[in-house]
Simulated assay, not measured.
Amino acid sequence: MNSFLRITICALLLSGCTLTNSQSMPYKAWYLGFSAPAYMEVWIESADVVDIQEQVFPRAMSGVASLITPPNNSGDPRGWPKRAPMGGGKYVTGADLPKQIYVRWQSLVEPQTYQMVIKIPEATRELMRKGEKVYCAADGKWITGYRQSIGIRLVPGGIAKVWVGGPCMAPIEVTKVKAVIDPRGPYEGKSDGEYDSLSNESKAYVEKFGVPYDSWK
């Protein structure tokens, strides 16, 4: 499986040399965001995007997945959210709608390193193209809204759920993916197996309650 992932990404990178200005979406850029449950800290080494025109956008996103770490163990990381946040991230500027997203990340509470390919079907892209009349309570206006954001929630055990959403619009779950473990460990084996330290709040929660793997099945 690991060899398959490496071959897949190499092939996609080689095929993404030609850029084009035409886009199939009704907005200039779409947003890629990541979140994690409370205390379940995640470091994203790289999220690489391949769009439907075979353009490749290496490291379209990297860094910390957004999460909440309340003090005194007052947060609850268990289960999937009813209304998923799009998470912290970036706009993928210059890209058409996504075909595949390759994600390599560290689950710091385990600790473990995962990688996966998220395939985005045409049905999901149609959701992202479709405009809907929606009411925005914040400014009291009706707008034509688009689900121009992809939110990916990463949890321990290497599981990810993916939603599409947009301003004033309810997010829609589109897929769930099980990643594989990268035996090389963090940073492709370049850190001698060393992971970054947890925050004090996350460390205190995990030491007292452990990691609720069963809540994300």
Rank of each mutant, 00 (worst) to 15 (best):
S149F: 04
G158V: 02
P183N: 11
R147W: 00
Y146C: 00
Q148H: 14
V155W: 05
G158T: 08
A123Y: 11
A95W: 02
G193K: 14
R129P: 01
W142H: 15
T124F: 01
K161A: 08
D192M: 08
I150E: 04
S149R: 13
K178Y: 12
A137T: 15
A123M: 08
K141F: 07
I143F: 11
G189E: 05
R153L: 10
Y187I: 13
L108Q: 07
I152Y: 04
K119R: 10
W163A: 02
G158I: 00
Y146H: 09
V103Q: 04
C136H: 11
I143D: 04
R125I: 00
A179G: 11
Y187F: 14
E188L: 11
E188M: 05
T124Y: 02
W105F: 10
A95T: 10
V177Q: 12
V155N: 06
L97Y: 12
L108F: 03
V134P: 08
E122A: 11
V134T: 14
V155E: 05
A138H: 14
E188F: 14
Q148E: 12
Q148I: 03
I181T: 14
Q112C: 08
V155P: 03
G157L: 03
G145I: 04
Q148Y: 07
Q115S: 02
Y102W: 13
V155G: 06
Y102K: 05
G165W: 06
T144W: 11
T113R: 01
W163L: 05
Y114D: 01
W142G: 01
V162P: 00
C136T: 15
I172K: 15
P98S: 03
W142M: 12
Q115Y: 03
V155I: 12
K119Q: 12
R129S: 08
E126N: 13
A137S: 14
Q100T: 13
P171T: 08
D96E: 00
P98F: 06
L154M: 15
G131Y: 13
K130N: 15
V164W: 07
R147A: 02
E126K: 15
S107I: 02
I118N: 05
Q106L: 11
E122F: 08
Q115I: 06
V177A: 06
K99P: 04
G140L: 05
M169G: 07
E126M: 10
G140F: 09
P98V: 01
K178M: 00
K176G: 07
K161D: 09
G131Q: 14
Y102M: 06
S107G: 10
K119E: 07
G140P: 06
I181H: 09
T124P: 09
K141L: 07
P156G: 09
I181W: 04
P167D: 10
I143N: 08
A170Y: 15
M128H: 09
D192E: 15
E194Y: 13
V117C: 09
I120S: 01
Q112L: 04
I120L: 04
Y114L: 01
Y135G: 09
Q112G: 00
E132A: 13
I181A: 04
L97A: 06
M128R: 09
L127A: 01
E132K: 15
T113G: 03
G166L: 02
V174C: 01
V103P: 00
Y187R: 15
D192Q: 13
I172W: 11
V164C: 04
I159E: 09
W142P: 02
G189I: 05
R153T: 13
C168V: 11
K99I: 00
K133W: 13
G151I: 06
